[in-house]
């Protein structure tokens, strides 16, 4: 089934077409979401939500955007929302006074100059011998600004070209190049800080 026909059938509410769409895109959506939220159960939940939104808003899909870019856009938006929500819960949850402590900047984990504390996230697709390094890298990725995180994930984890990323992020080629350049610079800076601290521990 070609893409225009798939879209037409989805717009008519065809369940078989929806199944084809889910089975075609599920690993792309899950992998993208997982790299951003860095939590397998949450990634599964968000990935399901992505397809529910695709099903419900396919009627409005049209224009020049490609179906793949549109789905990636929904996936990255939902993943960032989920990450933000969890981060806010961490920041304001816990003790009744944690809101105050975070306001006054005494929350050791979440300050603006926080050192890299790699999360215990292990991506199942990373080669075994690279797992430890990848864990450190994912910790650094999680601290990137949102747009840089999205551009880096789409390029390095999903293998999208710069041109394809422009379609997903609805940005110019030069902006995407700049985002990826800054993402790499930021990662180098954070990793340098991490390994420097690591030498002393």
């Amino acid at each position: 089934m070609d893409v225009p026909q798939l879209i037409r059938e989805l717009q008519q509410g065809n369940q078989a077409a929806f199944r084809t769409l889910v089975e075609t895109y599920q690993s792309r959506v899950y992998n993208t979401v997982l790299a951003i939220v860095q939590h397998p159960e949450e990634a599964e939940d968000v990935a399901q939500e992505v397809f529910v939104q695709v099903y419900e808003s396919i009627g409005r899909f049209g224009g020049d955007m490609k179906l793949t870019a549109w789905i990636y856009r929904i996936a990255t938006t939902k993943a960032l929302e989920a990450y933000r929500k969890r981060h806010a819960r961490k920041r304001f949850g816990g003790t009744p006074f944690s809101f105050l402590t975070s306001l006054f900047g005494s929350d050791e984990d979440d300050g603006p100059n926080d050192r890299l504390h790699p999360a215990d996230f292990e991506h199942p697709g990373v080669k075994l011998e690279q797992q430890e390094r990848a864990k450190v890298l994912f910790g650094a990725i999680s601290q990137l600004p949102e747009q840089q995180k999205v551009a880096f994930t789409l390029h390095h984890l999903e293998g999208l070209s710069y041109q394809e990323i422009t379609e997903v992020m609805q940005a110019s080629l030069s902006s995407v190049e700049s985002l990826l350049h800054r993402a790499k610079q930021n990662l180098r800076k954070r990793l340098a800080g991490y390994y420097k601290d690591d030498q002393w521990t």
Binding site: R19, V22, E23, Q26, S27, R28, Y30, N31, L34, A43, E44, A47, Q48, H123, P124, G125, V126, K127, Q130, R133, A134, V136, L137, H156, L157, E158, K184, L187, R188, L191
Partner: peptide
Amino acid sequence: TLRSLDGLERANPGPFFYTR
């Protein structure tokens, strides 16, 4: 460390994802 993601394979959701 930056090269540690080279050759990464896509992660997949659990089985019966469509049913869920």
